[in-house]
Write a protein that binds this DNA or RNA. Structure first.
Lengths: 195, 195
DNA sequence: TTGACAATAGAACGTTCGTCCTATAACATA
DNA sequence: TATGTTATAGGACGAACGTTCTATTGTCAA
C-alpha cells in the first residue's frame, strides 16, 4: 500500500486479509496492512470503519466483519445501472455463504450428471445443494432412488401415491408408493463458468 | 450439549459458533460450548481436532477453520452413494465462499430479469455473479449495453466485429463495433429454491 | 488388585492484545 | 501568523489469551 489511505483502501486491505486468513488481523498486523508504525494510527482507522459500518464489535469486544464486508454488491436487475468502482453508498450486499448455507449439517452438494432436469435449467456439471431432512412438497425437485439409481425429479404427491417426473420429455414419469427412498430436496443450484 | 463429547460433536459446536459469530471461540468460550469447566479439557479436544484436521493453526498460532470446517460434503454424482450423517471420513468438501468468490472487488451480483438466456439455463430470478474486469472470450455470457438497455448475451468475436446473441430464438442477434459497453462476464449462476 | 490410559479440573504464568495517554508533523482555515 | 483539525508515532498499562503443570476421577485390560 503506497497510495493515500482512505476508508475504502483500508477496508479493502482488511477484507482481503480476512478473506484468505479466515480471521481478523490484530492491531499489530494491521500496522503492516495499512503501512503505519503505531497502533494508535491503526485504531484511528478502525474507529472510522466502525463508524461507517464496515466493521463491528462483538459483545466481547472482538472485531468482526459487518455490512458489506465479505459480500458482493447486488444490482436489482439487468436493466438498472451498474455500481461504479468508486461508489461506496449503502447498496444491497449479499454474503453468498449466508445466502446458500442455510442448513449446514443436513445439506450436501451433488454434482449433476445427465440431462433429466434440463427443462428446469439444471444441467450436467452443475452443483446442487441438497437438504437431506427437508420434507418434500409438490413441485420440489428431489433426489430419488429410482430402480437402484439416484436421479433428480420433480416431486408430486397425489393422495397416497407419489409421482416423479423428469424435466425432460424423453424420460417417462414414475408412480411410486410411499416406500421410495429420497436423497433430499434440492435447495439451490450453482453453476460456475471458467475455472 | 448433554450427550457424550466426541470429535464430531465438538467440531460441530465450534463450527456452529464460527458460522454465526464469524470468528473462532476463545478457550474460555469453548468451556461453555463443550460444557466443561477447565481450559485444559478444552485444549484436550482442540488437540484432537488439530490432529484430525478439523482445525489448524496460523503461523501466529491462532486457530483457524480447516478442511471440512465451513464446507459441505460433495458427492461425485447422482449415481454414487450418499454420505450418511455418521460418516466422517475424508470426503471432498467444498467451501462455497471460496468456490464462488474468486474475485471479490471486481465482481458483483445481478438479479436476472427476462428470458434472454433460458437456452443457457439462466432463468428469471436467478442470481449471476459478474466479473467487471474479465476479458470476454467467444462463448462467454456477458452483460452488455444494447440500445441503452442492459441484457445478457453470448459473446462472439469475429475479427473486428462482435456478435451478441441471446440463448433464445425470439431475440435477434446483434452485430456491434468495438465501442459497445460491457458490464462484465458472467462467472457463475446461482438459483435458490425455498426461502 | 493393580496399572495404564482417557478425560477432566484448577491454578500459575508469560505473552500479547487492545486501549489510553501524550506528543508531533502536515495542512487547511481564519 | 495564529489556530484548529487530521493523521501519525511511541510508550504505558491492565486484561485476557493460550500454554503448561500437577492432581483427580473413571474405565478397561491384565
Amino acid at each position: 500500500m503506497n497510495e493515500k489511505r482512505t476508508i475504502q483502501t483500508v477496508a479493502k486491505a482488511i477484507a482481503a486479509f480476512f478473506h484468505d486468513r479466515k480471521r481478523m488481523p490484530t492491531y499489530t498486523e494491521m500496522m503492516e496492512l495499512l503501512d503505519v508504525r503505531s497502533k494508535s494510527a491503526v485504531q484511528f482507522w478502525v474507529r472510522k470503519l466502525l463508524a461507517n459500518g464496515f466493521l463491528a464489535k462483538d459483545k466481547k469486544g472482538f472485531l468482526i466483519p459487518s455490512g458489506s464486508f465479505g459480500g458482493l454488491p447486488v444490482v436489482g436487475n439487468v436493466a438498472a445501472g451498474f455500481p461504479s468502482p468508486a461508489e461506496e453508498e449503502l447498496r444491497d450486499v449479499l454474503v453468498l455463504e449466508d445466502y446458500l448455507m442455510t442448513k449446514p449439517g443436513t445439506s450436501y452438494i451433488l454434482k449433476v450428471t445427465g440431462d433429466s432436469m434440463i427443462g428446469e435449467g439444471i444441467r450436467e456439471g452443475d452443483l446442487v445443494i441438497v437438504d437431506r431432512e427437508r420434507e418434500p412438497k409438490s413441485g420440489d425437485v428431489v433426489v430419488a432412488d429410482v430402480d437402484g439409481e439416484w436421479t433428480m425429479k420433480y416431486f408430486t404427491r397425489k393422495g397416497e401415491t407419489v409421482i416423479l417426473e423428469a424435466a425432460n420429455p424423453k424420460y417417462p414419469p414414475i408412480k411410486a408408493r410411499s416406500e421410495l427412498r429420497l436423497g433430499g430436496v434440492i435447495t439451490a443450484v450453482i453453476r460456475k463458468y471458467h475455472q
